[in-house]
Design a protein around this nucleic acid. Structure first.
Length: 111
DNA sequence: TTGCTGACGGAGG
DNA sequence: ACCTCCGCCAGCA
């Protein structure tokens, strides 16, 4: 059980690392890919636990609406929105424009 | 153990 | 487009 949790976290990080530059995915998509469609919040929790120590593109993970719901967890000097815009993603009012186009679904791209 | 919180998601109104 | 409610799973006091 405890081992399962470890694996779940590890898988989350692995999937996040696989997100291509200029693309984004959602917490729910990751959770679903890992076989726990109801664990979207846990995915967010995992991100919060790792972003301080690891170098993970957590800015490429948003909610299902394309909103940067976790932007306030990033360093003010290096905001989530700016990081995304540097990768060519349009962010307007804390929300990703053309979300469907830049959306990267691990369930479809991976297998 | 209980209850509250939260980087969520979907269904309704 | 906006707001609410409910289900979900860990962490924490």
């Amino acid at each position: 059980m405890n081992n399962f949790k470890r694996q779940f976290f590890k898988d989350v990080y692995d999937v996040v690392e696989l997100i291509p530059k200029g693309r984004v995915t959602s917490y729910g998509a990751i959770a679903r890919y890992l076989g726990s469609p109801g664990s979207a919040r846990t995915v967010g929790w995992a991100m919060n636990a790792v972003d301080k120590t690891q170098n993970l593109p957590a800015h490429r993970v948003v909610n299902s609406q394309g909103v940067l719901s976790g932007a306030h967890h990033f360093n003010i000097e290096n905001p989530m929105a700016v990081r995304l815009q540097k990768e060519g993603i349009e962010v307007i009012n804390n929300k990703i424009k053309n979300f469907k186009k830049v959306f990267w679904d691990p369930n479809a791209e991976l297998f």
